[in-house]
Design a protein around this nucleic acid. Sequence first.
DNA 1: AAGCTTTAGTTCATTGCCTGAACTATATGA
DNA 2: TCATATAGTTCAGGCAATGAACTAAAGCTT
Lengths: 408, 408
Amino acid sequence: MVMAAPAVAGPGGSAPGSVGDVRRSNLALVLGAIAEFPPGTHPSRAQVAGATGLTKASVSSLVLDLLDAGIIREIGLNPQGRGRPGVGLELSPSRAVMGMEINVDYISAAVVDLSGTVLVREEQERDNRNGPDGPVLAALAALAARVRSGAGEQGVEVLGGGLAVPGLVDPAQARVLTAPNLGWVNVDLDLEALLPEAPLGVELFNEANAAALAELRHRPDGASDFLFVSGEVGVGGGIVIGSELFTGPHGHAGEVGHIVVDPNGGHCSCGGTGCLETVAGQDAIFAAAGLSPDGGSRSAHMSALMRALQAGEPRSVSAVERAGRSLGIALASAARVVNIESVVLGGHFAVLEPWLRAPLLAGLEKYAPGKYDSSQVAVSLVGESGALLGAAGSVIRSLVEAPHRLHA
Amino acid sequence: MVMAAPAVAGPGGSAPGSVGDVRRSNLALVLGAIAEFPPGTHPSRAQVAGATGLTKASVSSLVLDLLDAGIIREIGLNPQGRGRPGVGLELSPSRAVMGMEINVDYISAAVVDLSGTVLVREEQERDNRNGPDGPVLAALAALAARVRSGAGEQGVEVLGGGLAVPGLVDPAQARVLTAPNLGWVNVDLDLEALLPEAPLGVELFNEANAAALAELRHRPDGASDFLFVSGEVGVGGGIVIGSELFTGPHGHAGEVGHIVVDPNGGHCSCGGTGCLETVAGQDAIFAAAGLSPDGGSRSAHMSALMRALQAGEPRSVSAVERAGRSLGIALASAARVVNIESVVLGGHFAVLEPWLRAPLLAGLEKYAPGKYDSSQVAVSLVGESGALLGAAGSVIRSLVEAPHRLHA
DNA sequence: AAGCTTTAGTTCATTGCCTGAACTATATGA
DNA sequence: TCATATAGTTCAGGCAATGAACTAAAGCTT
């Protein structure tokens, strides 16, 4: 049964609850209400009271704490028609977090304020393949410092950050377990060095997971349950359930790229056989389309593939169709395991969607009839910078959910 | 990052927390501590205080509420060596819940006390296939009433119940969406009628999910993350993560039986193609082993299959090997999606495990190398009555986690 | 322009809960 | 018999939310 969630619930049997915890909980409730108000509108204390169910007295007191902590600020007046106008509240525009990304051929960093607006952003091309991790992180630290001081000049303080990496990560240990396309195995990261003295520290994310979180924030339909499939060199995924990232017991759920789609298929970089990635990863598609894997950069290949598809070149079309069919098989299986009915296509899957959609839907209909319909296969809205934005957004969200961490 | 769970955390942004919620939370904490003490040992208030981190004063007060509600009782003395002996506390033996099950060829009901001991149990053979649901439920209600009054004669009060059904359910609406082997589609159940006046009502469960919960309770290794695969006529599953059932956004996660294991495979009763169930379901195995599907009952077939396997009859052996390989493929895919590394085999998979294990492990190694090892493929310990026990256990657990529901 | 109405926000006494310290109760050991 | 150790209770103190009363500041009415 779907249990009615208690207003304040203890954890799985460990720490005792005391009165102070109620305040922490309500502090988050108030801040969340302010954050979730339609952008542009600045709710008054009274409106927050209405939205949260707390009394005006409690809200006043909680808002005071948040003001003291600098997380929110008062802005202008807010006439309600008749009586005394309310004082508008909004997330402080001078507090921000940093999103960072290490990818195969670039590093990037951006400062994002608490309402999600990108204030400063810088990207740096860099071949990160198969080199040691040290120089990559040094370069990123320099980039982050530059972006941070740029924000500082605008009077913006960076509270914390999130780093997205294309590989399996152990966030608790700040460790990259494997990142095949970077050539990293069991790399421990000194996240503190990326953002020295930041009160909230730096969190580590898998790239596809971070992108899924960004997608969650930007979906106009407000979807709270979906599977984000990210087509890159590899095929990654992120599962969002109830507006939360579902990571599984060890943090690596959603590895859609390694679902078996053909038991008699080819070898995969993961050591497995017949994984989706061996059919729908970038290199697999290029090879099947007859584009030599070494004759140019991947982005050049992608452009060539697009031209060929637009011209209706049969080999390219059938390569993409094969990828779509396999994607359908993988998503059918995934739907059965996690009971998700909605898919968002990211990375090259978004770009190839016009050619991918029909075979994908046919595959879903054949292997999981009735579980999806075409309206539940959408194209990503966040594009390239999804991982960056998602990492930042997740840090923002964890702050909103636990504002007491900021000495309030 | 794995966030440190706050001692008292609000829900996803709805209800305000107030001081009273702290008490509810701590009430559950105390009751949970008492429930989780090694069976046979009856903790004193002081020991509960130590285990929970609450003060003795708070524990005394909370224990008083639980005593008033009749959920626990004091039992004997508990010498600690030197000073004053503590008063032992235990879950009240006169409060219980009822587990119920509807299956293809029987219905059953059992009264289970709060510590998990089965007090009364009755099973009734009955052919529930393809008949209307009304008579089945009437028979179950009668059975439940009999068992309940049997418990009542021993002075045991039944507080609530859980019903396990072999099909997809919507617990919130008390509705069975589909139960192929019963021939039910969109059946609304009057759960209240099964246990009139029971203060906690009756919850509805999918059979494999309930069995997974029973498995959780009975594992000696205390595993808290595993995938339970139940082989019956169909192939069901239940995902346990962090000692909680993972049900997905719509409550139907873990349908391992319909993972695609062969894109060119046969039709499945779900409408799909190449599902695990078409290779590893009971009928599929019997057919592949050359046992005519209509020449006897399923249990007779199972006995025949076991004899054939013990004799090394090639067709039977290869049928089971094929099922094992396919199970390996399905579990490899599932591991990638939910990141679970441990499997428990139930139903006929438990019975066939000696023949199933080798091909299963080979499949896992081929399709998800390094994700599992043989020690993480275990055989179910709860056997036939798993669903019954799991449904009851889940109701007990939800009571332990929210004791205030009992007017305390 | 003065006064009424309406809404926003604050102040304050009350209630509920946990805490820590003091206290009572009850055992063992010398 | 007395010292010691442990269990459990009592009680004052602190913190948080509540609801009612109150102040503040606008629009509307006449």
